[in-house]
Design a protein around this nucleic acid. Sequence first.
DNA 1: AAGGCGACCAACCGCACAAAA
DNA 2: CTTTTGTGCGGTTGGTCGCCT
Length: 343
Amino acid sequence: MGRAPCCDKANVKKGPWSPEEDAILKAYIEQHGTGGNWIALPQKIGLKRCGKSCRLRWLNYLRPNIKHGGFSEEEDNIICSLYISIGSRWSIIAAQLPGRTDNDIKNYWNTRLKKKLLGKQRKEQAARRASLKQEIMTKREINESFMVPGAIPHQQSPYWPEVPALVMNQNQDSHLMDQESIRNLLIKLGGRFSDNNQESALFTTVNNYPLDGSSRQDQVPYTNSIDVLSSSAPMRSMDSTSCSQFPNSNYNGPDMCQAGLENLLVELGGLVCSNPQRVEGLDSFYGMDMAASGSTGASSAESNSWGHISSLGYPQLVSDYETCLQSMPQDSSFEDSSFFGPQ
DNA sequence: AAGGCGACCAACCGCACAAAA
DNA sequence: CTTTTGTGCGGTTGGTCGCCT
């Protein structure tokens, strides 16, 4: 037996909203609020609409100070960085962009930003491929000129499979800067860190947009998804069984870290590190002090120091993560893992 | 001019969560 | 403690528009 529908589907109008409907809904909410019940609201004001539909209409279009279209470069940067960091948590991303709705950002990402980034990535891959080919040719010529007759060609002939720039050592500096940028951003958004290096989850407070215009603060758990992108990320060696019970179902924890990471690598591989400009943009936007944050000297140890998380509402998350950490090698040996391909 | 096609975007759907009963 | 109900969220769909052939 499924749950009862939220409204009488037969007597509910679907499709685009008319200006009259908009006016009725807006006028009522501005005057009375929703009364805390979206389901009952349409009946009250004589709209043949589903309560959920009314809510969506209000949140996405009628609510004051909504911006549509015309995303700025800065907004692009923030969306990209947060998407890379936390995935498709549109409501959280939207909360960082005043006047933007999750629906708007989601649409923007799916229709434009993703393509824009993928196009950029393809260009960069093509360029890398070309320069790599050139390099191979050059080295081959050098090897051949020094080749002892009968000798086996060098095992480390410089051919790598196509690896996202994200994980390539040559890009590590910018990568680390990027981690630090996002980290700082998330801190600015309200996340908490302590000096304890053992635990690594971040809670950030996120403003939602409730009906009455007040600001509710939700606590949203993040793990060190930035670290996940790092070549020194501990997540990669996590035992999926010991780390699979994240309390927030929207956040899939290691599942996201693995499946999500794979998707991200496929979709956005190379974006993070091959785009230092983006990082700079972020920093300047937020006025971050990169030097103060120690970004340039970020070591793998530091990348584990996403900070202590007090068990604010999600003790399970923390304890699971602690379990994971304990089951992980404590030295840097996992840095040599071939998980991300050759180094 | 008309049909095909893709891009864009508003809206819907279903699931999960949390609070209330 | 269990069930019910409202809300929030992300994924998906379907309509519209503009460009191309």
